[in-house]
Design a binder for these strands. Structure first.
Lengths: 214, 214
DNA sequence: TTAATAATAGGGATTTTCCCGACAAATTGC
DNA sequence: GCAATTTGTCGGGAAAATCCCTATTATTAA
């Protein structure tokens, strides 16, 4: 097994230091070997045909920009490589979107090296991996079947959003034309459902689901 | 010269893979040695005192976030280290701003590894380096002298930021090690200075000045 | 070296929240 | 279609948080 064929890994990112550093780490991992495409390469398809990677670790925006240059999508790539979306946290999208595009794994740039290396191996073995840090796909119109433990009612969410914006119960009550007591109940039920306790828990949650954007 | 003392380099970034990879590359460069602070470390000042880096390569937002937790700026750091701002291209600011804050070099994340390694050495030798890819600072010299009616003290701002995050007075007090009563005073003064009344005024203000980003 | 602002904190009156309980209307599960 | 749950709506009362002052040292600016 020592001379088993190594997993060939191609790293694609617009940060050269990241590419070099990660490639270095990959190369010093038994079982993995790094292939590098420089930023100058324009023709990704030729590159993957030549390099024959088993796994590609790619920042999706960068990769898709490269592909767009040739009017291609991931699915057009003439490669059997499995592709890991290694995303900047600031523009990570819900996992469904990546899966639909053809990625086999989605990891944000907050993950530890070890986790990324582990992911390379398991993806090569056929696994699909999705980082828990990705934004949830709440109200996505797409099939949100089943798995919704404690979905908030619309009023509960409405109130919670206002709370996250720092509004007091009676302000919210005035906004939505209800008794402050009613608003309190919505808030109370909402935080119980989501298992939040303090107001800062609420704000943290709100930031995580993007309620406080802009 | 072969056994000259190596340049001690500390890498600070919220991307663990970048940190590990770059540290690896640094360690395999004769003349450089990498020190690593993990994301878990909160107390940057103690870390630099312990590690005694000669050069720090830091993503400024990350570094400044760490510092803000202790109500500090770069200039408070008890370290003689020269600091390289290694910036995400998307939020790079004009170089003057970094220089004013105390950085010795500004590089964007588009630079090649070799250039970064070179910069580490020359910065250690006293140079100042500014990446040409930075945005120019035309019309930025907005003389905002004069027009600062009620500037917040650092504590006042610190407290107000925490309030915007939904924290209660006693949580903040615990965070920054002060009596809740003192914290209340800071908040009280801050909102008087800025003419804010309700908590939601504070959140609105915080959003407008970008405190709730990310 | 005054004068002003900052850092720190206590007191007490007021407000706001928290945690229930209640009950009718709407929805969902079988 | 009926029972079970969830939602919409409020009230009460205890507990907690906040507001608005006052006060004493440091520090800083004029």
């Amino acid at each position: 097994m020592e001379n088993a064929r190594k997993i060939r890994v191609l790293v694609l990112d617009d940060n050269p230091v990241l590419v070099d550093g990660l490639s270095f780490v990959i190369n010093s991992t038994r079982q993995l070997t790094a292939l590098v495409m420089t930023q100058r390469d324009q023709n990704l398809n030729d590159a993957v045909k030549r390099l024959a990677p088993d796994v590609i670790v790619a920042e999706p925006r960068f990769l898709e920009r490269l592909l767009r240059n040739s009017d291609m999508t991931l699915l057009h790539l003439q490669s059997k490589a499995r592709i890991i979306a290694y995303c900047d946290t600031r523009d990570a999208q819900p996992s469904e979107i990546y899966i639909a595009k053809g990625y086999c794994a989605i990891l944000t740039k907050t993950v530890a090296s070890a986790r990324l290396l582990g992911a390379i191996k398991s993806v090569n073995a056929g696994d699909v991996i999705i980082d828990a840090a990705l934004p949830p796909q709440y109200e996505t119109p797409v099939l949100k079947m089943g798995f919704e433990p404690n979905r908030l009612s619309s009023k509960e969410e409405l109130v919670l959003r206002h709370v996250a914006l720092g509004k007091a119960m009676k302000e919210i009550a005035a906004d939505i034309q209800l008794s402050a007591k009613t608003v309190e109940t919505y808030k109370y039920r909402a935080i119980k459902k989501l298992d939040l306790r303090t107001r800062s828990d609420i704000v943290t949650y709100a930031i995580s689901v993007g309620w406080l954007q802009h």
